[in-house]
Amino acid sequence: MPGKLHRLGVLSAVVASSVLAGACRQDMHDNPRYEPLEASTFFTDGHAYRVPVAHTVARGSIRTDEHLYTGKIGGQLADALPVAATPELLARGHERFNVFCSPCHGRTGRGDGMVVRRGFRRPPTFHSDRLRSAPVGYFFDVMTNGFGAMQDYSAQVPVPDRWAIAAYLRALQISQHATVADVPAEKRASLDAPATAEDGAGEHAEHGAAGHEKQGH
């Protein structure tokens, strides 16, 4: 019966081609377009995109606010925030400080982060008289342009976050140089509450602040 045989042949061809088609799936998985950071053979540098000419300003994003973008007013480091100091700003700064700064500076800002313990040059503590009296714009400037062994963080930390970190640094400095009298009377009771793991500063609390300041220089 050649008719039936023929049908069986067609059926097996369909099954076989559907099995083999599984191998061709990558065609639709990888469309002929570039994903972010995908390599290209078109340009000699291997990038799929072109780097804008230096000092290119995108429409609507010219940086005319000297205080906001350089931390300076009239060429002098500013000692004021260009944004409102709110609890949200400090919380944001706290989070970003722990992500980007604490690897070297440590969570308490004493310059004893894990990367320093692995051999990076020790940064100065934030709790020295020099840095306590430094204008807040100084910290923004260092984050933006780098300082000493520290590379700049302008690509990793956007401008608003840099100010949040600078504001948090001020709060951190005050927290490490405060007396009981600085704490509002109604909050003093909470000072005696046991520390939680969240504080992350437990190991430093045992040491005297003065001893660390000497190490910091």
Binding site: M28, H29, R33, E35, A39, G46, H47
Partner: peptide
């Protein structure tokens, strides 16, 4: 020159 990392988590383009 960029390092050419091999992408590990690559969803299909569709």
């Amino acid at each position: 020159r960029s390092l050419r990392w091999v992408r590990v988590h690559d969803l299909p383009d569709f």
